[in-house]
């Protein structure tokens, strides 16, 4: 008997849909939970990031999801959006997840963006390293602007004059993505795009 990862309700035994890329799409949440998320597909452009696409709104269901995924460390929930992330990221090259600080990664026991990509079976390149441990929420806007870059390139990483695609779980102020994009552009990337699961 399979249970919904979110509400523990029993999942109906519908024959599972066979994915065309060879991995079977597993139903991991129930229809009711699935409908509680609000798909928005917002796209925005800035001078630094040519296009940022965000799949979902930050509604109550999404807040609870993120809380359980990140703070209760429920890595199983990375499976919830595997199909949706696969659909927007399949076939893209130079996918770069926004990393968490190495210390944070150890205490959380995983990096949430990498987990999302792993479950979606999307290959990625681990190019960036987080420098500062203080979370963005604890800083004022001035402090954020005055800070040195949040990320640096990992040693021995070579950036090609190509297009790169940053992936993050949530887009709030855009500071994180912009900071990462600037590092890639400064190192020779031709252009930077971004995809986030959520837009706050």
């Amino acid at each position: 008997m399979k249970e919904c990862l979110l509400c523990e309700g029993v999942l109906s035994n519908k024959p599972s849909w066979q994915g065309f890329i060879g991995f079977e799409k597993q139903q991991v949440i129930c229809e009711k939970c699935s409908n509680s998320f609000e798909r928005t597909d917002i796209e925005s452009k800035t001078a630094i990031i040519v296009s940022t696409t965000s799949l979902y709104a930050y509604n109550d269901a999404m807040k609870n999801y993120l809380q359980q995924f990140k703070f209760l460390q429920d890595i199983a929930l990375a499976a919830v959006f595997q199909q949706e992330l696969y659909d927007v990221l399949k076939g893209k090259s130079n996918i770069v997840p926004i990393p968490v600080h190495p210390n944070r990664r150890v205490t959380r026991t995983f990096s949430q963006v990498e987990a999302l990509l792993d479950y979606a079976k999307i290959p990625y390149k681990d190019l960036l390293e987080k420098r500062d441990e203080v979370s963005m929420g604890e800083k004022t806007r001035q402090e954020r602007l005055a800070m040195k870059p949040l990320f640096e390139l990992k040693s021995s990483v070579q950036i090609q004059p190509e297009s790169y695609l940053l992936v993050d779980d949530i887009y709030t102020t855009g500071t994180t993505l912009h900071s990462a994009a600037k590092v890639l552009l400064a190192a020779g990337a031709k252009r930077v795009e971004a995809v986030t699961l959520i837009r706050a």
Binding site: M1, K2, E3, Q73, I75, T109, F110
Partner: peptide
């Protein structure tokens, strides 16, 4: 069914947690 196995960054190996 209430366990998840994953690659744990803390213990650096196969880890299992209770849901």
């Amino acid at each position: 069914a209430r366990y998840t196995h994953f690659d744990c960054a803390k213990c650096g190996g196969n880890c299992t947690y209770c849901r």
